[in-house]
């Protein structure tokens, strides 16, 4: 509408009146049905009136009609938006008092059945853990630095737990490298730290299965035939008497902190 009326306005100023009028009569009603409806609605005498006239009168009126329309529409739109936001907030809000019920969610399942062999070549399964507190560690004997350190931490921890807190724990070392860590080798390796540490090894598939169940990440790196390292997360798992994983400790724990943390967990369990 605006360009057309502007054209008319321009034409009426600069071109001969007659010419512009004839132009309007020819095009305006047919090309622009809206303009016709305006002329009708304004009731100024219909088509026979000078179109020029109609437009000049119509101009302020149309502005007014826009204004009267826009204001309620904006108000309505704003009101609708506010209502929608309010409704959406209400829908998403968690009512007070229901939080405890809603938040209950069993954590990831860690651990599971396994069947490996110990350093005396006896078959061991998860049933051997029943009724005991177990400190489980996944490692490998060919580790250059962190592996021996972790096993040392383990040996010191069980010593401290026994002497300071009078708590008994079964330390278990599961190898992630069963190809090289044979029962005999594992026994020789663990004996140097503490003969009480039990070593588990087995078929590579069985070890992999157990590592998967305990969510242990491991992979071979720096591989050169039979000489390789195993990258792993050197975590300890504290397992309760019902075979459940109570807590997991990373390599950042030293013997003192580990002893403290394990004693806390064991006492809490005994109290409850």
């Amino acid at each position: 509408m605006v360009p057309v009326s502007r054209f008319i306005f321009f034409a009426s100023k600069h071109a001969p009146m007659q010419h512009s009028l004839s132009l309007l009569r020819r095009f305006s009603p047919s090309r622009n049905p809206q303009s016709r409806s305006y002329t009708k609605s304004t009731k100024h005498g219909g088509e026979k009136r000078e179109t020029q006239h109609v437009y000049t009168i119509e101009e302020p009126q149309r502005e007014k009609s826009y204004a009267t329309f826009i204001l309620p529409a904006a108000l309505l739109g704003f009101g609708g938006l506010a209502a929608f936001l309010r409704y959406n907030d209400e829908r998403r809000a968690i009512p007070r008092g229901e939080t405890q019920k809603e938040q209950f969610c069993p954590g990831p399942v860690i651990g599971g059945p396994f069947s490996l062999i110990d350093t005396e070549k006896r078959v061991v399964t998860e049933r051997d853990f029943l009724g005991k507190w177990v400190l489980l560690y996944f490692g490998y004997t060919s580790s250059p630095d962190i592996g021996p350190e972790q096993v040392k931490t383990m040996a010191e921890t069980i010593d401290k737990l026994e002497s300071q807190e009078n708590l008994k724990l079964l330390p278990v070392f599961v190898t992630l490298d069963p190809q090289r860590d044979t029962p005999t080798h594992l026994r020789a390796y663990l004996k140097e730290f503490d003969p009480r540490i039990v070593g588990f090894t087995g078929a590579p598939g069985a070890v992999r299965q157990m590592a998967l169940e305990y969510r242990v990440f491991f992979r071979k790196i720096e591989e050169d035939k039979d000489d390789y390292l195993v990258e792993a997360n050197h975590n300890f798992y504290l397992i309760g008497p019902n075979k459940e994983v109570v807590k997991c400790f990373g390599p950042e724990y030293n013997a003192e902190h580990l002893t403290e943390a394990i004693a806390k967990e064991m006492k809490r369990k005994a109290a409850s």
């Binding site: 004997t141 060919s142 069963p178 190809q179 090289r180 044979t182 005999t184 080798h185 020789a188 390796y189 140097e192 078929a203 590579p204 039979d226």
Partner: peptide
Amino acid sequence: SEAYASRNPDQVHTDVLL
């Protein structure tokens, strides 16, 4: 690698011991 373990069932790799 599995054959490796069975090939040396009782070998102790002394180069990683204390």
